[in-house]
Write a protein that binds this DNA or RNA. Structure first.
Lengths: 156, 156
DNA sequence: CATTTATTTGAATTTTATTCAACAAAATAT
DNA sequence: ATATTTTGTTGAATAAAATTCAAATAAATG
């Protein structure tokens, strides 16, 4: 059997979705043509794309880690270059350039700690970074603006 | 003129989108009916929903800050309670319970630094936290798995 | 290996998005 | 103020896409 599911989720993670104009038209009580026009306008700047939201543990990305990064002194004035290189990796959910204790903050999603180790070794380990501090998430309470409801396994 | 744009973004923030079956079918070189069937299966557990991704500065949420939190010693064994209280606020994009230097990591989106100050004062300031370190994002390179393409304003 | 369950697919049908031209409203220029 | 241009709204026609369904195939199970 073809493994369509995995290929689908890969695409839906980054796009391949579209607004439901008829649904929006009904919800807002406006004609579809009006919704259509306004969405096109929003797409010129305000809407960056459309995508699916997942239960990540079902798509081999259940392990979420913050990676706080110091870049090398000689790269210090151009963190965007390193950040853009890192942005290419699909494990990377977000990258922010910050200032203070760290230079970059990444949110990385992998299947498990083993795959995260591979990411640190093969990706971060090969860039000009002077230090990486990994902070794994023990539990997510809210994600992508959506509260996560979950039963406590060990609750007695 | 009707303010359709704002009402649209409110809905698109949480849903009102759908997968593009024909696009997926072309990309994966499979018949639309097959894509349709597999997506329906994924929707039973793996896909939580579909939504738009925004350029948040255009919808009054352009200021993004990591808030690293220490909770009080007497609450230390129950961080989930505090986390769930914080999860209620719409400015909070995500909350993770971590261990190590900090107890909680929040990602908070506000219109600007003034609104963030109000959040720290009125929300964080009123909870049993022993310390909060705020790390504002200077520039986002990737967000929600989508790379941000942007011209450098000061590039010469 | 018999039976059940899950998946794939083409073709018919239904639903939805898109286009377009006319009109209306707002913004801008005179 | 008002003429002119730009932006936004909308119904109706058209084009495109999603959905359904039944038949075939593949995989899992007894």
């Amino acid at each position: 059997m073809k493994d369509i599911r995995a290929r689908l989720t890969d695409l839906l993670k980054v796009g391949y979705c579209t607004p439901r104009i008829s649904g929006l038209a009904k919800a807002l009580k406006e004609p579809p043509a009006t919704i259509h026009y306004n969405i096109r306008q929003l797409e010129k700047g305000t809407i960056r794309g459309y995508r699916a939201v997942f239960d990540y543990k079902n798509i081999d990305q259940g392990f979420c880690t913050y990676a706080m990064i110091h870049i090398m002194p000689d790269e210090y004035m151009n963190p965007a270059k390193i950040a853009k290189d890192l942005a290419k990796y699909p494990q990377v959910e977000c990258i922010d350039i910050v200032t203070g204790d760290w230079d970059l903050i990444l949110r990385v999603r992998t299947k498990d700690i083993d795959e995260y180790y591979q990411f640190v070794k093969n990706v971060l380990g090969k860039m000009r970074l002077s230090r990486v501090q990994s902070v794994p998430t023990m539990k997510q309470i809210k994600d992508e603006f959506i509260e996560i409801k979950e039963d406590m396994i060990l609750k007695k």
